[in-house]
Simulated assay, not measured.
Amino acid sequence: MKKITNWKLWAKCAGIRAVKTVAQTAISVIGVSAVLSDVNWVAVASASVLSGVLSLLTSVAGLPEISEE
């Protein structure tokens, strides 16, 4: 695991990645409902938040968007 030296860049890249992951999870959970009125919004929110947290934790191991200088 490489050492993080630029925290602002890491936070920006990790945040962007987490937001994309949250959006993808929300879309997939919403997509399993037959109609929009059947969407379990609590499940959408909890699954999306959990995926965002996991994305941030995974980003600690390294981000390919940040090249070594």
Rank of each mutant, 00 (worst) to 15 (best):
L9A: 06
K2P: 10
G62D: 02
G52V: 03
L9H: 00
T5N: 10
G62A: 07
V19N: 10
V35K: 14
P64L: 07
L50H: 12
A45D: 13
V22S: 05
V44Q: 07
T58A: 09
T5I: 09
S59P: 12
I66G: 04
W10P: 02
A47W: 04
A45Q: 14
E69P: 03
V53N: 00
I66E: 00
V22E: 08
I30K: 02
S46N: 13
A47K: 10
A47L: 00
P64W: 06
K3L: 11
A61M: 12
A14V: 13
V39I: 15
A47G: 02
S37K: 14
A45F: 02
T25Y: 03
V53T: 05
S59E: 06
V42C: 01
V49L: 15
T5V: 09
K12H: 09
L63Q: 03
V19T: 14
V42K: 02
T21D: 13
G62R: 03
T21K: 15
V35M: 09
E69R: 12
S28W: 10
S46T: 15
I30Q: 01
A23K: 15
N6W: 03
M1R: 14
K3C: 11
A11R: 10
S28E: 15
S46G: 04
T21E: 13
A34R: 06
G31D: 09
W7A: 02
V19R: 11
T5K: 11
K20Y: 06
S33K: 08
